[in-house]
């Protein structure tokens, strides 16, 4: 027996002409699933997907590393954004950087692309699939100083995005003290920027990225890069942790 936790009564006063039927009232109920009082399951549904679940679980339940903390996304900066952008940047440098003449200066991702939080404790392959379900690949863009500045402005306008290798402050809706790869931003230089093929292709309304000077496909899925970074850290005997370290901050 389900007695709805929240039940609202309200009225629709739709009385058209006498020739039409009318809605005289509506009630709404929201059922939060699988909370106390809502714990029944339909076993025919479980049976239907059991064969799929066995296979998926066998691949997904592999533990990659232990995390010291749970990580969620946030703006202007979040733990989840930091760890995801770090993993992507570090792995592109390690796996792809040596094959390219382009320096790998910084990485940016989008918060919309981080689809689930990471828990404290065991981090499984499945957790990373939930975080990054898309088949997006990492690309290395060469951007002029001018286009890089547009990107910085875009990040400001978004109120912050997941970044690694980039540090900046936002003052009165403008960027200030922008540091890229340890050095102050210089508009006369070009920069090597790692991101997803989705964003590089103008996703999230990053249309101006079509001004890129060069785009190299790494052939590496961002999800696989994150999995590898977590495995690498685990092999070194590390646990997973992240900090809010002032990559993007508001100043007065």
């Amino acid at each position: 027996m389900f007695s709805p936790i929240k039940k609202y009564f309200f009225l629709l006063l739709i009385f058209a002409s006498c020739k039409t039927s009318s809605v005289i009232k509506s009630e709404t109920t929201v059922y939060p699933l699988n909370q106390p009082g809502y714990t029944q399951v339909d076993s025919s549904i479980l049976q239907l997907y059991a064969p799929y679940k066995v296979k998926v679980d066998s691949l997904m339940n592999r533990v990659l590393i232990k995390s010291d903390m749970s990580m969620e996304k946030g703006i202007p900066e979040g733990l989840l954004g930091n760890i995801s952008a770090d993993a992507t940047l570090l792995q592109v440098r390690e796996i792809y950087g040596g094959n390219s003449n382009t320096s790998v200066d910084f990485c940016f991702l989008n918060n919309g692309g981080l689809r689930a939080s990471l828990p404290k404790g065991d981090i499984t392959v499945g957790n990373v699939y939930s975080l990054m379900p898309f088949e997006n690949e990492a690309v290395l863009l060469t951007l002029s100083g001018e286009t890089t500045e547009k990107l910085i402005d875009f990040i400001v306008q978004k109120g912050g995005m997941p970044v690694a290798g980039l540090k900046m402050q936002i003052k009165d809706s403008l960027s200030t003290n922008v540091i890229i790869n340890g050095k102050p931003f210089d508009k006369s230089k070009t920069y090597g920027v790692v991101t997803s093929d989705y964003l590089a292709g103008g996703g999230d309304n990053l249309y101006f990225l079509n001004e890129k000077l060069k785009m190299e496909s790494t052939g590496l899925k961002i999800r696989d890069l994150i999995i590898k970074e977590f495995e690498d850290r685990n092999k070194k005997g590390e646990t997973l942790n992240a900090k809010i370290e002032g990559r993007i901050t508001y100043v007065k």
């Binding site: 629709l12 006498c18 039927s21 009318s22 005289i24 509506s26 709404t28 059922y31 699933l33």
Partner: peptide
């Protein structure tokens, strides 16, 4: 699928036979 929404409408189908 964290929540399921439910809206019950009460429709007066025969109002056409009654005066407004």
């Amino acid at each position: 699928g964290i929540k399921l929404g439910r809206i019950d409408f009460f429709v007066n189908k025969k109002s056409r036979k009654l005066t407004a």
